[in-house]
Design a protein around this nucleic acid. Structure first.
Lengths: 262, 262
DNA sequence: TAGATTGTTAATCGATTAACAATC
DNA sequence: TAGATTGTTAATCGATTAACAATC
């Protein structure tokens, strides 16, 4: 995302690589499961298995945080839970606003894992006047006009965009102008933000299409196990008049850019 | 993500790196937007900007598919839409089943981008007898018992898990046993699958926690701009009796492992 | 002590990027 | 032809991994 990078290291300032940061929440979740079961200590091998990574990677990742294990013994579960929580910023509270309360916003508001671990939904916002005043998961829906005042008065630091794609950039701009520097975007749109603003994106279509790519490969492998034929195809005319869809492609409906429920 | 790898290249068999595959859907979406606007040709610079990447990366990515551009001109939009669609497997239909019709499953069923582009929701399945028979987005909710027969009769190739975490692995096992090899997992659980099965995961908690990490760094940077103090902390006792939460950590409620709405 | 397991090193691999020759 | 832009090269950077010394 757009976090500033120091030269020579895509590391998060105090030395934790992005790839490691992205795995810390997974380790934390696995540790919490151990904790619930009453397990006091885990080895890197056990924890790695629970997190779905190999143990070398786990140990390397944890080594960026400090030396929190004990050789010959393993890691103290409660202690590591705390260290990772602290590193991730989960020992403080984060006020979140959800913009767009369609069926996705609804699901997000009801999502248990959201309100836990320091993420507090302090406001829901929607552009539809008919929905304003409704209560969802104990939070009232506010009009979009109040976005800025809510951010200021409630100290919102994280904005969640669950609007239709067509509204997402404008909502994003308003969030940023109001001082929000962390955005979670569910709208199928590439957001443009200034430096210093972090955007993470959750994109159902992208995930499905990646699955389809691999699924297609599997089925090709079954039906056509020999080395690939050349995939090169003549280039289109330089005047732009050629159209690949005469080649059997479906008509371009552009539906992928369609709105999310909002 | 368990696609088998050939040695020497984390490339998807016919030579497309994983990182490239993950961006193709983003390029496709940008191209569809150009197409809707009636733009016939785009340069790598324009398309890259629309997709939020730099143009060198875009050209490198596209070069794995073939030479579909025209030097001095750019890329024919419709032609590239087709080539990327074909490469991603979007020129065929993919029958999907959504397991778990809580508020998340509801949102997914209503999601427009789902049914478009070759992804067809052929069945909804839920464990709750009270919901069976309901219609959502034109699709009837079936009992969980019918999962296997539905997969067989409807030719399901993609399974979407939107159940509580506690049910996810069992649902996954049944999907796999019934022949599904592509799974999109929304449950906050690491799924174990045999080789040849692809799992992609969408995880709200993880995304929020990554945002929190960076947000914390930003606020630390403001309040404490000098070089880090040593972050090393004494290791816990080897008997596992130490507990970092006496250090100011919140009591471990384990809430993060809680269920998604299902 | 002997066994177990961490933390770290170094090699390898994959991804990114700038630059530019090729060529429309 | 001159200008524009692709496709590719090569350098660099980041991430992964196996192996093992350190050490509990």
């Amino acid at each position: 995302m757009s976090a500033a990078r120091s030269p020579r290291a895509a590391r998060s300032r105090d030395g934790i690589p992005d790839a490691t940061v992205a795995r810390l929440p997974v380790y934390l979740r696995a540790l919490l499961a151990y904790s619930e079961r009453g397990t006091a200590t885990v080895s890197s091998e056990e924890l790695a298995a629970a997190a779905g990574v190999n143990s070398a990677k786990l140990r390397k990742d944890l080594s960026y945080l400090g030396s929190y294990g004990t050789r010959g013994v393993g890691y103290d579960v409660a202690y590591l839970v705390y260290q990772i929580s602290r590193e991730l910023g989960l020992t403080q509270d984060w006020a979140c606003v959800i913009v767009g309360v369609g069926s996705l916003g609804h699901a997000l508001a009801n999502y248990g894992g959201f309100s836990s671990r320091g993420f507090r939904i302090v406001a829901l916002v929607d552009a539809d006047p008919a929905r304003v005043g409704e209560t969802l998961a104990g939070v009232v829906i506010n009009p979009l006009e109040d976005l800025e005042s809510i951010i200021a008065s409630r100290g919102v630091t994280i904005g969640v965009i669950a609007t239709p794609g067509s509204a997402a950039q404008e909502v994003c701009d308003r969030l940023v102008a109001a001082g929000v520097t962390s955005i979670l975007n569910f709208a199928p749109v590439v957001l443009t933000v200034p430096d210093g603003v972090d955007v993470r994106k959750v994109d159902l279509s992208v995930e499905l299409q990646i699955l389809a790519f691999h699924a297609q490969r599997k089925s090709l492998r079954e039906t056509e196990p020999r080395p690939r034929r050349s995939r090169r195809v003549p280039a289109p005319n330089a005047d732009g008049s050629s159209n690949g869809s005469t080649n059997g492609a479906p008509a371009d409906t552009g539906a992928l850019t369609g709105a999310m429920p909002g």
